[in-house]
């Protein structure tokens, strides 16, 4: 029975997870450089030990109002084929080991932007963890233009 480790985090009280293997690191950061004219989902750029990282605001990706950058924000930095990208989340959860048995495809009743961003759901004790499709979640091109 195969099982995988997931790093979990919350956005708007919903629990999400990405495979631990693709997570580069998790950190809190507060100085973001806005990128005018960039897609709205781009929260800004920041300096990760000399590397310029783009932060994608998951709230915008999920169709919620954009985050305000008054305080520090939590970053889950994931590796994609092209670059390392940060996902801006509300709260970091723990790393959980989940067996494939607990996996289910996205419920049919789920629609809206969220439906596009997840691979499926894991049944945890008392709550659902949605497995995020990182490629789609970090895709800021198209659709969500500058305004």
């Amino acid at each position: 029975m195969a099982s995988r480790q997931y790093a979990t985090f919350e956005v708007d009280t919903q629990l999400f997870g990405v495979p631990v293997a693709i997570v580069q690191e998790v950190l809190s950061f507060h100085e973001y450089t806005p990128v005018p004219l960039a897609p709205k989902a781009v929260g800004g750029l920041f300096n990760l030990r000399g590397q310029v990282i783009a932060a994608v605001d998951l709230r915008v990706q999920l169709g919620l109002p954009a985050r305000d950058f008054d305080g520090p924000a939590m970053n889950v930095i994931v590796r994609t084929d092209e670059e390392s990208v940060s996902l801006l989340v509300d709260k970091i959860g723990e790393v959980v080991e989940l067996s494939d048995e607990a996996f289910e495809p996205p419920p049919d009743t789920l629609h809206g932007p969220l439906r596009e961003l997840i691979n499926g759901a894991f049944k945890l004790d008392g709550r659902l963890m949605l497995a995020l499709d990182t490629a789609r979640a970090t895709d800021t091109g198209g659709g969500s233009g500058s305004d």
Binding site: T33, V42, L45, N47, G141
Partner: peptide
């Protein structure tokens, strides 16, 4: 800059300033 900003077209790249900000 990564390709996600290519369409914007106003930026040639990014840099880090003396205070570490991008």
């Amino acid at each position: 800059l990564t390709s996600r900003f290519k369409d914007v077209g106003v930026y040639a790249g990014a840099t880090l300033l003396g205070d570490g900000k991008v």
